[in-house]
């Protein structure tokens, strides 16, 4: 390889990455500085949490969740990890190994829950039992367990690794359907309310190319392979569309999402209030719910009564779509 001609915008040393949205190139040191500053700006601008708050980071073994955990700990925050074993075949086995190694190597506290061991089901079985797409059962299970772990553990906030690409793709999906209720809730921080813990997304100002570069430069081993069940889903398609636009018009993606938060979200604030009316408590687990029994407990009932479904059967079903 011949050294690149491009220089770091900050120090003029050889660059390791080009970021068209910033119209700039960065060396390893100054890319990390950019990531730190963007995360801290998100935390402060959106009043996500303070230096004394106890943080529970939802980790999956992928780049974003390990990056945000690493960045928070490096910045001096008290942050523990929480991992849910989803039972998605080899993918989940690999995820567990990456998360466990990350925590052990850094001496960090990792809480874990395994769906099959503790609730008697896994995601492929839940998908088959409920006749819904696997990502639906997966997202609902994780959200319930993140909330429960945060409340039970006395944490002030649940942090997830959602990045700018994730949020822009979800926003595109919500706009395409003009789903006002979802649009109103698509905020970088949601306050604690009705028994739910506060939730924050400190990486919303960073693209996933930047979080992946952070991991690479910091020596973080993460699971690069995509969830086999998620492959081909609508969310990934929306990301591809946005990146095609970004290629022709750099910084469009960040303008799309960040201007929505600044200009549009305030106009939808009353919709958020209307959607978060009083909730009752699940008679089974005590979680907030609109009915007598929460959606998670109903899922557990159906999925745990079903014969285990190997992940290959769910993959086959998606592949025929």
């Amino acid at each position: 390889m011949v050294a690149a001609g491009s220089k770091c915008r900050s120090c003029r040393e050889p660059a390791v990455i080009d970021l068209p949205r910033h119209n700039a190139n960065f060396c390893a040191e100054h890319l990390q500085q950019l990531c730190r500053r963007q995360m801290q700006k998100a935390i402060e601008d959106y009043d996500m949490f303070g230096p004394n708050d106890r943080i529970l980071v939802a980790v999956s073994g992928g780049k974003d969740s390990l990056a945000v955990w690493d960045m928070l700990v490096e910045a001096g925050y008290e942050a523990d990890g929480f991992y849910v074993g989803l039972g998605i075949g080899d993918y989940s086995d690999e995820s567990t190994r990456y998360v466990t190694a990350f925590a052990e190597e850094r001496g960090l506290r990792l809480l874990t829950v395994d769906l099959r061991d503790e609730y008697g089901y896994d995601i492929p079985t839940a998908a088959r039992a409920t006749k819904r797409v696997p990502c639906s059962a997966c997202g609902m299970s994780k959200r319930h367990l993140f909330d429960k772990a945060a409340v039970d553990g006395g944490y002030d906030v649940v942090v997830t690794g959602h990045n700018l690409d994730d949020e822009a793709a979800v926003l595109l999906g919500n706009v395409l359907h003009w789903d006002i209720e979802y649009l109103a809730r698509q905020l970088p921080v949601l306050p604690a309310a009705n028994g739910f813990p506060r939730k924050a997304k400190p990486l919303v100002r960073l693209t996933e190319r930047e979080t992946a570069a952070w991991c690479l430069l910091r020596g973080i081993d993460y699971l690069v392979e995509e969830c086999p069940i998620a492959a081909g889903n609508r969310h990934l398609h929306h990301k591809g569309v946005l990146n095609s636009i970004e290629k022709e018009s750099p910084s469009t993606k960040s303008a799309f999402y960040l201007n929505f938060i600044d200009n549009m979200a305030p106009l939808l604030a009353d919709q958020t209030a209307a959607a978060s009316g009083d909730l009752s408590r699940c008679v089974r687990c005590g979680a907030p719910t609109t009915g007598e029994t929460c959606a998670f407990c109903r899922l557990v009932d159906k999925a745990s009564a079903h014969d285990p479904v190997p992940v290959e059967l769910v993959l086959g079903k998606r592949g025929r779509r």
Partner: peptide, 9 residues
């Protein structure tokens, strides 16, 4: 060549 797109739902 490392893809950076993830399908987190």
């Amino acid at each position: 060549i490392r893809p950076v797109i993830s399908g987190g739902c």
